[in-house]
Write a protein that binds this DNA or RNA. Sequence first.
DNA 1: CGGGCTGATGTTTACGTAAACATTACGCAG
DNA 2: CTGCGTAATGTTTACGTAAACATCAGCCCG
Lengths: 340, 340
Amino acid sequence: MSRPKAPRVSMADVARLAGVSSQTVSRVANGHPSVVGSTRQQVLAAMKELHYRPNSAARALKSGQFRTIGVILFTLSSTGNSRTLEAIATHAALQGYAITLIPVAMPTQDSVLGAFTRLGELAVDGVIVIMEVHLLDAATVTLPPNVQVVVVDSDAGDRYTVVDTDQADGARQAVEHLLALGHRTVWHVTGPEESFASDRRAQAWRDTLTAAGREIPPPQRGDWSAESGYRAGLALADEPGCTAIFAANDQMALGVLRALHERGRAVPADVSVVGFDDIPDATSFIPPLTTVHQDFAEVGRRCVEGVLRQIERGETEHGTALVPTRLVVRASTAPPIDGR
Amino acid sequence: MSRPKAPRVSMADVARLAGVSSQTVSRVANGHPSVVGSTRQQVLAAMKELHYRPNSAARALKSGQFRTIGVILFTLSSTGNSRTLEAIATHAALQGYAITLIPVAMPTQDSVLGAFTRLGELAVDGVIVIMEVHLLDAATVTLPPNVQVVVVDSDAGDRYTVVDTDQADGARQAVEHLLALGHRTVWHVTGPEESFASDRRAQAWRDTLTAAGREIPPPQRGDWSAESGYRAGLALADEPGCTAIFAANDQMALGVLRALHERGRAVPADVSVVGFDDIPDATSFIPPLTTVHQDFAEVGRRCVEGVLRQIERGETEHGTALVPTRLVVRASTAPPIDGR
DNA sequence: CGGGCTGATGTTTACGTAAACATTACGCAG
DNA sequence: CTGCGTAATGTTTACGTAAACATCAGCCCG
């Protein structure tokens, strides 16, 4: 039934039908000016009749460009990654670039190295790495020389072009919001150790408390998952002085909310909770979550701009571009009950 | 600082250094048997020294195959899509295939048509469409003849190869679970109209109630978002006879939980709630959500298998492959309070 | 009125790979 | 010892496109 041997239509076929040379077909395809109107019409008609589609492999071979950007990432399960990826794909498409996904099975240097090795054979002009950069360091040696790199989630702005959310400022806003409400100090649930974003948020949390002259409670280590937030929340629910919690992402905040609920600590009456990310579901948490809004779309847009600038203009300017964040106040934060 | 003109290393360069012909290099690269050991070693050494990487464009031009699968989807914001995509990417990589993302800006026929037109020029051997198939119908005519298609979220098994979760059976399990607990009937919050998955779940809900001889309450229309679930939940909270709600996905269930909470209806004491998807966060809802687990990894794996079978063996067998679902009972369901 | 110039189109070539075909050299059988 | 077969390697060619160069016709200006 199906014909696997569908013969591909080439410029030569179109040229034959239109009665011109294949070079003229090429000129029409690329919008070259020096083709007279009547000829152009003939060629266009022939293209349409034969359903001509340019062969991207030949085009890439000739031009040395693939018009494709590779995106290396570890997982799509985190909201941040998948939303950044979506924004990247959208903006790349707008610029006429396709996206090739390069998933890395596990966040180990071996896996990353493997991904980069494969990358050498892949048809990409540039790469966006959504990953902590330390994992990338070992792999750098094998990076094909023509491939440009932009990195998210890193502080390696001296060696790469880095685009990231302004993690520190977001965390500062969260902590200051809680302090401004009158809380004596703020407890923190962190992300996993390997994450630069988590580090950065924790550091800013510490710095903001220090700057305000507040005590720094021991941080609870999480792993971004709601489950880990739940465990941290159970621990914090038993801390008598804990009236304000800043969770490093919304999913852990969800877990914290559940733990507090189970232990009979009311939010925000007894304890205030702030998250980070502003995932769409955050408005429907119980109660709706005060959180730090990240502009993933903007991060994606700047990533694409960054690689394209490198690819098309050969500019390799390193440095870090920070995308601002914004605190969104909902119902999970309130002043503490005095006299506790 | 950077050298944009890094000259690409070709087989000819390797051949020169190794003192053989480029054809011999090709044979070594492709593991052809008739190359004697010593020659092979020389070539491999030369490859390593020059950091040779095969040029995929040339290879594709020669072979007519790109070893790439395109994935067309509308959005990554839904858990299902992004997790299916991740599974697809992982399995494709295992088979030596890359994934090219083709995002469609809006779920309109025009957008889809545009995506498919671009597709013609893209370097892909096959396509996986994660989208309701009706949107695809208008675009089909422009599908390049060599490209194989597998569809998710559709009942078009007579015209395409379709892989999907067994939506109907999942919904049936959810409803039967609630009836078995003793609820008189089950109310339903649906997904958006255009979604086949939503239709299918709603249909199975209706059928299961009918088969049990129960009354069928008017369904509440949602759009997959937690916000829409919240609105539906507010409406249902005021329904006196409503003791059991089946939401067509977990996010809408989250919204329902919040609405019930705000109206003072306890879950599961007053009302039981069941979701669909089993997103990781579902364990941390208040209370932890009983839901229908979808095996996205398996869906992704079968999609890849399906396209590859078509690409590599030219088999174009249509039909629908259903991936089974499993009800996960947590704390959001319980028998109704009698005498209401 | 003719030479050169410009604009439209055709011809040649190269991109990197790999199939198809050609050429060695070596070993073994007659 | 000669010839043939086979295994190893080299040479040619084609894939589809587009840059570079070549050709041709018409027209402007001296």
